[in-house]
Nucleic acid binder design. Structure first.
Lengths: 174, 174
DNA sequence: TATGTTTACTTCACCGATGAAATATCCGCT
DNA sequence: AGCGGATATTTCATCGGTGAAGTAAACATA
């Protein structure tokens, strides 16, 4: 598997050459975008690696965690779509997958019969409580050489960037 | 479409509640992971939005850009897989798609007849040179309120994180 | 030069995700 | 009460991506 750092080196060279041909390019900013995308993919793969033994994929895990973290352990497909930034179509499949394994239940809403109520089961809670801790060491290792201020900075900058992205997409694809 | 910042707020609450149930969780680090993943997805969507009018997807664009940035404008499927972190299978499809549009050519290597030489065409270069500049304003906007040191910090922290991820995956899935 | 191993790419079968359309229910208005 | 539009979820067709097996050429070595 290709190392992330060598990909980054190649990306740096590539951007240098492109910005020679097209000097109006915002090279530093484009570099940051690519960096972010690459590191994001790296974390994705790391997460997938940790989820594979449990036969979960990223979106199923996220959905289960959202339910786990809710005080009442329940939600609806529509709400879960919002929070997990998933399409409704996919949420149907995710719910099917989790329900088939007995980690959640699907029931009809009494108040609004269009709605489906999804609830995490006791088995689902047990499952999460057991699978989560073994991930912790690797998460810690990811930020090994990060000082407290490093972490604070990264947190702040990512949130700032998220705000900018929100404003961008508001204007164009709202 | 759900705003990124509200998803982040919900994520914060979720992590708080989970770390009450499971206090050994490295909450700050998990938060950073999720933040990075979410911002990464945001940039992905933004990129997809800019590519859609050109009927390109992310991996096709990246592949084309790698070719564009190479001094001789050529490479091989294997090399492109490495640099674009793509599976060989997918690279075949990408090359098919780009070749069908006349943006690249596929030829046999004289030196090694197992190899396929992929080369960006004049039309491919023109295509890139025209599609790239309209993206610049939005990239600039993404980092609008970032100071020069903000950008430097983000760059440094992401590279550091990439190094850590490399060490992680070396040990476990090499 | 014959043989087994490695490398490069493609084909095939499948999975996860998405857009468009279908279905069922709810809500506002007359 | 009943009609029209909005909302919630599912189904279907399709796309992009991946793993496993297939094919072809190169290399190593005996």
């Amino acid at each position: 598997m290709a190392k992330l750092t060598t990909c980054i080196d190649l990306m740096d060279e590539g951007i240098d050459r492109v910005s020679q041909i097209i000097p109006t390019m915002p090279a530093a900013e484009a570099r940051l975008c690519r960096l972010l995308l690459m590191v994001g993919e790296g974390i994705d793969q790391e997460l997938a690696f940790k989820l594979k033994p449990h036969k979960l994929n990223h979106s199923e895990f996220l959905t289960l965690m959202i339910l786990y973290s809710r005080p009442d352990g329940s939600s609806t497909p529509g709400e879960l779509c919002e929070f997990a930034t998933q399409g409704a179509t996919n949420m149907t499949r995710i719910a099917n997958a989790l329900a088939r394994r007995g980690l959640i239940t699907r029931g009809a809403s009494a108040a609004d019969r269009r709605r489906v109520v999804i609830r995490i089961t006791a088995a689902g809670r047990r499952f999460v409580k057991e699978m989560l801790p073994p991930m912790f060491p690797r998460i810690d290792t990811m930020f090994d050489n990060f000082s407290a201020t490093d972490k604070r900075h990264l947190d702040r900058l990512l949130r700032k960037l998220a705000g900018n992205l929100d404003r961008l997409s508001e204007h164009s694809h709202p």
